[in-house]
Design a binder for these strands. Structure first.
Lengths: 194, 194
DNA sequence: ATAAAATTAGTACATTTGTTCTAAATTATA
DNA sequence: TATAATTTAGAACAAATGTACTAATTTTAT
């Protein structure tokens, strides 16, 4: 396999395990190459993080566009979206566990995230409108509360892993189940009574 | 003022501004003392963070116990609790902005947080039961959803600042208002229709 | 006022880190 | 096969950091 790809894999593994302060020397050692060689492929350490961020963003975009293309959006499609999302969140978990530090260190990532969230907010509100029209969501919820729900979804999606890391430390399958249950429960009080 | 207290103030200021990687040299320079002097008062850098964490925990405990002592818990008392909470969250915001990194670096803090959250979960559920009995909260919500709501509250409380830092970057009063509004909206769909 | 204790500044050191440089080795190309 | 391009390892460097140490200064106690 490509050395560049192998570096990204080793970096992802180590960042997820040891956090954002894992060094290029450790990343290189972890895959049995020299630090000099690593810096031949990635001149700056941050380039590795930027590349991993781009991978994450791409994988997420695919999930979102697949959700948007669904012929008829149901609660189930929303739930399966969250289950699939978690696989990506978990794969790149070091980003979410150290999100602010990364944003400070690499402002372009923060800027990218910011514009991404603005786009997503509109997409989610559109989905909510459909679910209201279809009688799945309640019709008596003020607009401001839907706006707050969108932000709530973003916060819980992005930081559930951090909370898990500080408390239960669930891994893999167990974590996925707990995350999905958390998201499902979030929607419960917004469902219309039928 | 006590040099030890002044170090804590300078550290808090710098950690909030520059993040968890602010150095003892910078903290000392920021208040016009030598690094040697700083290490006379705090042998290890982490001792500063631990002390700040203890301060935060103490201030929060006072808020929670004041809420628990209220003669009759209403929605208003819950809202004013969140408004007051935010002052403390904001004062020690570096902790929440770098929560996982701190937890990894100082395991005693993580352990303390974990047991704190277990205690708080019970306290919150007790409050919810009162609000249900008083007809303020809906009676048709399954127990599992209340449990999820508690976790939701913890996640949004602890990481709203991180989300804000990555998106809107609201400060002071504006941040407090947005946070409180977010928390209020969270409870809206759980209110009984009266 | 003097001795003792506490505080402070400044130097020094070992370690770590990102990165550069050089030369060797490997791979591709003609 | 000979040459050029790419890849790799390893040494070297400068900067930063935590913290230990020393000597001076300030404060406190007698």
């Amino acid at each position: 396999m490509d050395t560049k790809t192998r570096i990204l894999e080793s970096a992802l593994k180590l960042y997820n395990e040891k956090g954002i302060d894992a060094t290029t020397r450790h990343i290189a050692a972890g895959m049995g190459i020299s630090a000099g060689n690593l810096h031949y492929h990635f001149k700056h350490t941050d380039d590795i993080i930027i590349t991993l961020w781009d991978q994450l963003a791409t994988e997420f975009d695919q999930l979102v566009s697949r959700l948007g293309q669904a012929t008829e959006i149901s609660l189930d499609s929303l739930h399966s979206f969250y289950y699939q999302s978690f696989q990506t969140l978990y794969k790149y978990r070091f980003i979410f566990l150290h999100f602010v530090a990364i944003g400070i260190r690499i402002p372009t990532i923060q800027e990218h995230y910011r514009s991404l969230m603005q786009r997503r907010e509109k997409e989610f509100k559109a989905i909510f409108r459909i679910l209201i029209r279809n009688g799945i969501f309640r019709k008596d919820i003020p607009e401001a509360v839907w706006t707050a729900l969108v932000r709530q979804i973003f916060i819980v999606s992005d930081f559930w892993l951090s909370n898990n890391e500080l408390t239960d430390r669930l891994r893999d399958k167990e974590a996925a189940i707990a995350f999905t249950k958390q998201m499902e429960s979030m929607f419960f009080p917004y469902l219309s009574k039928s």
